[in-house]
Design a protein around this nucleic acid. Structure first.
Lengths: 239, 239
DNA sequence: CGTATGGTTGACAATCCTCAATCCGGGTGG
DNA sequence: CCACCCGGATTGAGGATTGTCAACCATACG
């Protein structure tokens, strides 16, 4: 068993990862729990208040549109993550979108603040969410800034494998939440270039693609060797 | 007065920016206040505990070294910022360094947690620090991932101008905390390329460089026009 | 079974990196 | 006060990587 492989004990199917039910219940008590569909844009305000989205199921991402058909996907939110819109401004082209249909709990910012006072464990958890987010974005900044195209693709597969992969007889199966264009914008790559790098990994037997949304990482260790940030990613993307 | 210019009321010299004295005093009460010199590496542990550094004066940065002489500078910490080393692992090549000599307060992680319980305002501030940090790194990820070389250089000058600039008869004077190589690694650029882009901005009369560590942004508005992320940077780098 | 959407691939262009030569500025010693 | 030297900064030529555009292919869906 390689040290960096996804949790072997994970037997749930991808997309229905466990997230602390006590937290979810506490948040649902002061917020609204509802289903979201892929492609849906989540409002960053409720009236005049900022809101938080707790991901129960599915996946969200934060994008930023730039002039000239450039888009950056800055962060991905997985089940158990809290996405805060306190600093999101759609006036600056930033939007929170649903990558994979699922369930979220929406909580108004002031409600969460109150909850943090009445529930000390929530306060602790809130800080942890923010820290995890900061550290993940840092790792992501290194990926898009200093890695080559092929290393970036490896980094994405490692991230997704760690967050959503299942171990099946030495290979890792992953359901990919992103479309090609979304992966490309997440990795700051052109979709054409992304396709090339993926093809290379395919032809070298590291991964196999089943349809458009399912990948089998045949050689996990080889994938790790192809990404200089593998160790950091493991520390940061952990479920 | 351009809408995006650095605060006109700032009369302090760069490097001695104001940071909330009450916060600083509260932190100094449970931590250690000391001077740091440029180039110094700050330990990320104190015994077995993680620590936080509150920047009173000067500037810090977080770097990550990669195989093959690649280095990424992931974040810069200005006066008033709190740098948490909870997730920094020098085992993965990450280090916290001093860009500009100054003063910091070091607080052990458990001490800060206690302070957050006894002082509700500190808890609120802690969350805000983490959020600001995440949002800045997000903006930075867009800069290094999706902007062209020249746009990145403009982004850096805007960031530094907003955080440390002084308005003097329509121009903005800035003391740059980073060396050339550090700026290059912060922008995910090669030092040679950085030099080229700076020369272009110089020859076009947007900036003037005085010595190696001092810049005069002659045409602030033009600089903003050259960076598609100017509006976001203003929202995020604000003192 | 046809159409539509999205993914792949090839040729070429643009951008940025690498390496090496040159330049400049600041300190040192004559 | 000036010549010299050293380290960092600049600049040029050439190469590597990635982006662009267009044609082709596959998969999904009615």
């Amino acid at each position: 068993m390689p040290a960096l492989s996804p949790d072997e004990s994970a037997t749930t199917t991808a997309g229905s990862l466990a997230c602390d039910p006590k937290l979810e219940a506490a948040l649902a008590g002061v917020g609204t729990r509802f289903k979201v569909r892929r492609g849906q844009k989540l409002p960053e305000r409720q009236g005049d208040d900022a809101v938080h989205y707790f991901v129960c199921d599915g996946a969200l991402y934060l994008q930023s549109e730039l002039p000239g058909r450039r888009r950056a996907i800055v962060a991905t939110y997985y089940p158990g993550d809290l996405c805060s819109t306190l600093m999101v401004g759609s006036g600056r082209g930033e939007d929170l979108l649903v990558a994979e249909s699922g369930t979220v709990v929406r909580v108004r910012a002031d409600m969460l603040s109150e909850l943090c006072i009445s529930l000390p464990m929530m306060s602790h958890e809130y800080v942890r969410w923010m820290q995890v987010r900061a550290v993940r974005v840092e790792a992501h900044a290194i990926v898009v800034g200093r890695l080559t195209g092929e290393e970036r693709v490896a980094a994405y597969l490692i991230e997704t494998g760690l967050m959503r992969g299942e171990n099946r007889d030495k290979a890792v199966h992953v359901e990919l939440p992103f479309s090609r264009d979304e992966v490309a914008d997440y990795l700051a790559l052109n979709p054409d270039s992304l396709s090339r790098f993926l093809s290379r990994l395919k032809s070298e037997g590291v991964v196999t693609l089943l349809g458009h949304r399912r990948a089998i990482i045949a050689d996990w260790d080889e994938l790790l060797r192809r990404c200089p940030l593998a160790e950091t990613l493991r520390a940061v993307f952990q479920r």
